[in-house]
């Protein structure tokens, strides 16, 4: 069973306490952007077989949003971190690199 630690309130809980919110670190494109960028922002998914950065909400807890780095094949959680960031903290990236050398993600923004 998936166990996550909420970086907002510090509670360690199992999956049913949280609600998944999909891919993280989306770069927003709004009015005035190209069709291509707007489409990709809304619809195109990384959906990797491997390292995934994603949003979660501590739905049955403090109610706040946060981010997690997780492996979609092994289900290993590399860490959770604040949602107030454009990219994962270096410490999380290092942990991921140690386990999955050569992992990739579209440009962080």
């Amino acid at each position: 069973m998936l166990i996550l630690e909420c970086p907002c309130c510090g509670v360690v809980g199992e999956e049913t306490e949280f609600a998944g919110g999909g891919e993280a670190h989306l770069k927003r494109f709004g009015p005035g952007s190209s069709e291509e960028n707007f489409h990709d922002y809304l619809f195109a998914k990384e959906n990797p077989k491997g390292v995934h950065f994603e949003r979660w909400r501590h739905a049955n807890g403090c109610g706040k949003w946060f981010h997690a780095a997780r492996n979609t094949v092994t289900l290993e959680v590399y860490g959770t971190y604040s949602a107030q960031t454009y990219e994962p903290p270096q410490e999380i990236k290092d942990k991921v690199s140690a386990k999955v050398p050569g992992w990739s993600w579209r440009e962080f923004a």
Binding site: D40, F43, A44, K45, E46, N47, P48, K49, R106
Partner: peptide
């Protein structure tokens, strides 16, 4: 379920989650 994975080999992304 592997559509995103194979699309990635051809260099494009899909509106799909597995």
């Amino acid at each position: 379920g592997h559509s995103g994975h194979v699309a990635d080999m051809a260099g494009f992304r899909l509106p799909i989650e597995s």
